[in-house]
Design a protein around this nucleic acid. Structure first.
Lengths: 228, 228
DNA sequence: CGGTATCCCCGTCGATACTG
DNA sequence: CAGTATCGACGGGGATACCG
């Protein structure tokens, strides 16, 4: 137990848990693992502002704490939660529910389109999407040049995020401010509301336009009831 | 929002929650408030290794974040949880349950008798204790001189912790190693088990000896089922 | 793909003393 | 009781480059 958070010198289990978990980024790494990330670069995509050396350090700490296991699968490395790690899911969920209810305001800097698309790509309801290849195009006119246009390529094998036009035919096109799209994703605003108020535009064949909201299950926390 | 934790630059509610909560001591302050602490020096007793300036800072941060309210009651100051703050209870509970299950080993430095007595004093089942004044004496032979002997004075108005003999007649005397007593308190070991194995000695009239374990409700996490 | 290696800054935290 | 004031160190962590 060499390099873990400083001790609180308390026997209280909350304190003991926080010695491990209160360090910056740690619980977000857990969140990524809970969300299904397995490989180093998977995790990095969900934690773009975290330096690779720090991620590496955190993974080692968590491994030493018995929260994750590091395995070689083929010539790949694979991180998975142990039983102890899996049981951190309720902690992550409690934090996310609380954050959803009580941390309303997002700064502009919180609105990372890459992160948004990465999150969307892993919350797609495959059964709802048409067979074959379906491409959804997102346009955020207010975002910086390089981050304006995105494509989500959905096939039966999964979904890929592209920041350059993959060239395939686009099934549906979504245009909105980045903030609005994030709010929809978080469940702060409904698809219908946003369209009705002209805050979001969906283009494409009517059947597709109608179906699109069903393709995404939204963030896990979207359904959390908000304070009255 | 000037002095809060550094931003993660993520819209994820877990990240937004952790920007506030991942700083050292913050969740332990919340724990104290959840446990009923109201005044600055109450909180300090539950957080002995936290410097007063840092506690002050945390309280201000939490107030700015809308998690606690600071009120003057008479010429006293009183901190209470807001609605948002109360809803952090599930977070604290999830952390405590996890810590109870998965952080078994306590360092010697975690075994603070003052903290133990302070925790005990606020988890007494008043209905179970005899009428009038009841004094329980604790003796930790392995603890440093000044921290060996403690008295818990229980009346209908509450309980007081003394580190010097208050002089009242002692109803029951408990002798054990500090570690053993903490383990009992955390629910790692039962009263009966400890006595049976000679790890703990209870002295006094038989009726009192039998009744004593019922006077304490133990730590909130004592009942958490342990991993098999 | 899966990480190390460095470097350095700046902010946090701890310790201690002191005040209305 | 309820905090401020001050100060210094230490190390966490951000940035960037690089390696197998």
């Amino acid at each position: 137990m060499s390099t873990m958070g400083t001790s609180y010198y308390q026997f209280c289990p909350v304190a003991k848990a926080m010695e491990l978990l209160d360090e910056r980024w740690t619980l977000l790494v857990i969140r990524e693992l809970v969300s299904g990330g397995q490989h180093f670069n998977d995790l990095r995509r969900g934690l773009p502002r975290m330096s690779p050396s720090l991620l590496s350090k955190r993974l080692q700490q968590l491994q030493r704490a018995g929260v994750i296991a590091r395995r070689h699968s083929g010539n790949n490395v694979c991180y998975t939660l142990t039983q102890a790690g899996s049981e951190l899911r309720p902690v992550v969920e409690a934090l996310g529910s609380w954050g959803t209810r009580w941390i309303g305001e997002l700064g502009d800097a919180d609105l990372d389109p890459k992160l948004l698309l990465w999150d969307m790509h892993r919350n797609i309801d495959r059964n709802a999407v048409p067979e074959g290849r379906t491409v959804v195009h997102f346009d955020f006119p207010d975002a910086p040049r390089k981050l304006q246009r995105w494509w989500l390529v959905i096939t039966k094998d999964g979904a890929d995020v592209c920041d350059i036009d993959p060239g395939y035919e686009v099934a549906v096109s979504v245009t909105a401010s980045l903030r609005r799209m994030v709010e929809i994703w978080r469940g702060d605003v409904g698809w219908g509301d946003a369209v009705g108020r002209g805050m979001l535009e969906i283009d494409g064949p009517e059947a597709m336009r109608r179906a699109l909201p069903g393709w995404f299950t939204l963030s896990v926390f979207a359904a959390v009831p908000r304070p009255s």
